[in-house]
């Protein structure tokens, strides 16, 4: 009886008795979700365009943030530091194509995946050798005041993050669906050989994709870094992006966003209302349980392409 009460009755009583607090929990969750989405986006971009699951996306987030902070610490003004970091990420994309992808053309997905694990360690190491391993504060002057709307506490920084994510998703959607390069990217993702036969140069396309993913990583790094400091654990948020991808589908940009929001809200609600039933700290594993459930019932995710093969 006690268990049933704590699982199925008490949480709903709590929710209905204090709707304002519930709204705050949901909004807090949405904001964290936006941040997850930002990281997941980087994965989706590379997976969509080259079929590679880039394990190093988290390390790229850390690397970008470290580079930015490192430049700022050396007295480079913010706009220049931003531009410099973008250039570094593009140079990194070129290096990755030259040193890694070029030699692995036509290899199995799993081999490319293993290569990105290697890349992950390399970037984590290189970033810390170059810029040191202390926790750094990233202050870009993004306002961080809280204010109340209809009794609900909101935070300016969170709203700012949400706005950035919205802009980025719009830009990426137009880029992918409408532009010439976007179409070439989708073509390469679909069929390497056919793309080559219509004269799309694979190498250039890979550099572009990895550059875009690098810039998305930079944005994610800025938002996470400004929120919780630039430190090694940034590369671990990539792990939180995994359940987001499973929910949203590996190939869907809107999926990455919605998936991020669901995970963000889901884990906050679970933690606060169902946490007591499990002795707390569900936030850490709730996302993975949800992903597991999805794998059982809808493995292609909410928006992923269902693969149908003609036989």
């Amino acid at each position: 009886m006690e268990l049933l009460n704590i699982l199925f009755v008490a949480p709903f009583v709590d929710i209905t008795s204090s709707p304002v607090f519930f709204a705050e929990v949901v909004i807090g969750g949405l904001m964290t979700g936006v941040m997850y989405s930002l990281v997941a986006l980087g994965f989706v971009l590379i997976f969509k365009a080259s079929g590679v699951f880039n394990f190093a996306q988290g390390a790229m987030v850390l690397f970008a943030a470290l580079t930015l902070v490192g430049l700022m610490e050396r007295g480079v003004p913010i706009p220049l530091a931003l531009a410099g970091t973008v250039l570094v990420m593009i140079a990194l994309a070129m290096l990755i194509e030259r040193m890694m992808l070029r030699h692995l053309v036509n290899q199995e997905g799993i081999i490319l995946f293993m290569a990105t694990i290697g890349l992950n360690f390399l970037l984590e190491g290189a970033g810390q050798i170059a810029w040191g391993s202390n926790v750094k504060v990233l202050d870009l002057g993004i306002p961080n005041q809280s204010f109340e709307v209809a009794g609900i506490l909101l935070n300016q920084f969170d709203l700012f993050a949400a706005a950035i994510a919205a802009v980025m998703v719009t830009v990426l959607a137009v880029f992918f669906q409408k532009t010439t390069i976007g179409r070439a990217l989708r073509a390469v993702a679909d069929d390497h050989q056919a793309a080559l036969s219509v004269g799309i140069p694979l190498k250039t396309i890979w550099v572009i994709v990895w550059s875009v993913a690098g810039i998305v990583a930079l944005v994610a790094g800025i938002m996470w870094g400004a929120k919780s400091g630039v430190q090694f654990s940034l590369s671990l948020i990539a792990l939180k992006a995994l359940p987001v991808l499973i929910l949203g589908g590996f190939t869907s940009v809107p999926g990455a966003i919605i998936g991020g929001l669901i995970i963000g809200v889901g884990e906050k609600i679970a933690e606060i209302y169902w946490g007591p039933a499990f002795g707390g700290a569900i936030e850490g594993w709730f996302a993975y349980m949800l992903a597991l459930a999805f794998l059982m019932f809808r493995p292609q995710g909410l928006f992923g392409e269902k693969i149908i093969e003609r036989v």
């Binding site: 010439t180 179409r183 070439a184 989708r186 073509a187 679909d190 069929d191 050989q193 056919a194 793309a195 036969s197 219509v198 004269g199 799309i200 392409e305």
Partner: peptide, 17 residues
């Protein structure tokens, strides 16, 4: 070897690349 997820129009447009 077509780009299966893309529309007829987009497929032919890639030929203009």
């Amino acid at each position: 070897a077509l780009f299966k997820g893309m529309s007829t129009l987009d497929n032919i447009m890639t030929g203009r690349n």
